[in-house]
Computed example of a mutant assay.
Amino acid sequence: MFETTRRRALQALGVGGAAAAAGCTVRAPTADAEKQRDRVEQQSTPSVDRIAADPTDIPEPIDRSEPAEVDVTLRPEEVTAEIEPGVTFDYMTYNGQVPGPMIRVRKGDTVNLTFENPSNNALPHNVDFHAAAGPGGGAEATMTAPGETAHLRFKATYPGAYIYHCAVPNLDMHISAGMFGIILVEPEEGMPSVDHELYLGQHEIYTDGQPGQEGTHSFDMAAMKREDPTYVVMNGEKYAMTPSVHGSAATVSTGDTARVYFVTGGPNLTSSFHPIGNVWEEFWPQGSLTTEPQTHIQTSPVAPGSTCIATMTFPVPGNFKLVDHALSRVARRGCLAIVTAEGEERPDVFDPDPQSGEGGTASA
């Protein structure tokens, strides 16, 4: 049954072989784009109210000392949502959100994946886990046509935060449309305790419109080939995690510590990840947990297909902006999340108005 399912999916793609299943074969990109364009013409109003993943919706830290079997279900869902008010786009997602759900396991655990491609989808999909030690990260094993279900079993043999993403031949289009996420493999000793954990993902969206141009935007293959995105966003929408859209990524208290799990889906642009008004107190490049963290990092590159883990503290209250320090992406294309810290002012640490005499001693 599995081989039949895989062959049917490959036939639906019009390609063959393991390399194609793993997204390593280049073909004319028109088929997926035309199918998506047809969906845009049929459905110009949102089918979901929100595409942005809740950055606080993270599985609890693992509290066990022995390996276990962990059941995971991923559904590639093709949905229409707003990138910003008045601008609709056809997304491809895992479980209806961008980034896809964060998966949390422990080194030595066995992941039992059920991959369900709904019958109302237009396209084949699959998933490549960078945490899986096996051909294509499971891409060939999970290649499914609409209406098909596949199963994958793998052991998490190395700790760290790893991207997972769609890996069909037009993988760049599918990732750009939202098909990526993080699987966290905790080390056997677990993760240090923090007050908050957050989950954010950055990617580019290539459309045939301009930022803010109201109406339905179709995917633009030519813009993607030029690496000229319309939007660069965190969690799927322009300024999604800000008070004016879906609320801050988190509200914390001064003195708290937050750990951020961050993934760059891409498919093309490297993020220069930076917390405005702060630094990364601890920073694990590439999501690697087998080395000591870097400390007091202002800005660090997170390449497409990679992750980082970073902690930050909040000595004073205010809005702390998490951005790509390629700042035109923030000002023009939507790449911003905000963490709001509440608490007492600390003029000995930061005084925004020293001349008032209320927050400190004014100089003569």
Rank of each mutant, 00 (worst) to 15 (best):
D90I: 07
M92F: 10
T93E: 02
T93K: 09
Y94T: 05
G96T: 03
Q97K: 13
V98P: 00
V98L: 11
V98W: 07
P99W: 12
G100V: 07
M102D: 04
V105A: 03
V105R: 03
R106L: 13
R106K: 15
R106S: 06
R106Q: 15
R106M: 12
K107G: 14
G108S: 12
D109H: 06
T110Q: 03
V111K: 01
N112T: 00
L113Q: 05
L113W: 06
N117I: 02
N117E: 02
N117Q: 08
P118M: 07
S119N: 12
N120Y: 13
N120L: 06
N121S: 08
N121T: 07
A122S: 14
L123E: 11
P124M: 08
H125M: 11
H125T: 01
V127M: 00
D128V: 00
F129T: 01
F129G: 05
H130C: 04
H130I: 00
A131P: 01
A132C: 03
G134E: 09
G134W: 06
P135M: 04
G137F: 04
G137R: 02
G138C: 05
A141Q: 11
A141H: 05
A141K: 10
A141Y: 03
A141D: 11
T142V: 04
M143Q: 01
T144H: 03
A145I: 00
P146W: 03
P146V: 06
G147N: 08
G147E: 04
E148T: 05
E148G: 04
A150C: 07
H151F: 10
R153E: 06
R153D: 00
R153M: 02
R153L: 00
F154V: 03
T157K: 13
T157W: 01
Y158L: 13
Y162W: 15
H165D: 10
H165G: 11
H165M: 12
H165Y: 13
C166P: 03
P169T: 12
L171V: 14
L171F: 14
D172A: 14
M173L: 14
M173H: 14
M173Y: 13
M173D: 11
S176Q: 06
S176V: 09
A177K: 15
A177P: 00
M179W: 08
M179G: 10
M179Q: 15
F180A: 10
F180T: 04
G181L: 08
I182M: 07
I182K: 06
I183T: 11
L184S: 13
L184N: 06
L184Y: 12
E186F: 10
E188M: 13
E188P: 07
E189H: 13
E189A: 14
E189N: 13
G190L: 12
G190K: 11
G190Q: 09
G190E: 12
